[in-house]
Computed example of a mutant assay.
Amino acid sequence: MLQSIHHVAIICRDYPRSKAFYTETLGLQIIAEHHRAERDSWKLDLALPDGGQVELFSFPSPPARVSRPEACGLRHLAFVVEELDSVVAALQAKGVDVEPIRVDEYTHRRFTFFADPDGLPLELYELN
């Protein structure tokens, strides 16, 4: 049976910009980086502290992803944070536009959303 999520794969339009966002802005650590010349594509494996991974891919001229209004398919990617206010402040200090913090009506946990350079919705979810 399923045990956990191993990785999430993201396709980006501007590889250097997205690489900087995920490594410098979000602080994910690089596991491996490969250029696949036959596909004119980069693959960047990034580590999350819990062992999960984000795979960042680039391809020439990928089609735009529909995310708003809500579209069928993957809705967003959520990251667990220990203390939401400090993470939001750090992102805002780096120029990232973060939505106002909300409280989940069912779990009573605080969360917020922001977007990566290609507009992919990313969520910060506080467990404390």
Rank of each mutant, 00 (worst) to 15 (best):
V98K: 03
F113Q: 03
L44Q: 08
Y125F: 15
D85I: 01
E38W: 04
V98A: 09
H6R: 12
H34F: 15
S18Y: 04
I30T: 15
K43E: 12
L46K: 11
E70I: 00
T107N: 14
D104N: 15
E123A: 01
R39E: 14
V81G: 01
R39S: 03
S4A: 14
A32L: 04
E123W: 02
S4Y: 15
L28A: 04
H6E: 14
S67I: 15
H76M: 13
S67W: 15
E24N: 10
A37C: 02
S58E: 04
M1G: 15
P121H: 04
A89S: 12
L74I: 14
L26E: 06
T23D: 03
A93P: 04
V87I: 06
E126A: 13
T25M: 11
Y15C: 02
V103F: 04
R36Q: 13
D118M: 00
P16C: 11
F79R: 03
G51I: 08
G119D: 09
A71H: 14
A37F: 05
L44R: 13
R68Y: 12
A32K: 06
R17D: 05
E55H: 15
F79G: 11
S67N: 14
I11T: 12
P49D: 15
E99T: 10
A78Q: 03
V54S: 07
A115H: 13
V88Q: 00
K43T: 10
V80D: 13
V96F: 01
S18K: 08
A37T: 09
L44I: 12
I10N: 04
I11N: 04
L2C: 04
S4M: 05
H108K: 09
A115V: 09
Y106K: 10
R39H: 15
D104I: 06
Q3P: 00
M1P: 08
H76Y: 14
E24T: 08
H35Q: 13
T112S: 10
H76N: 13
D116S: 02
E70C: 09
F111D: 02
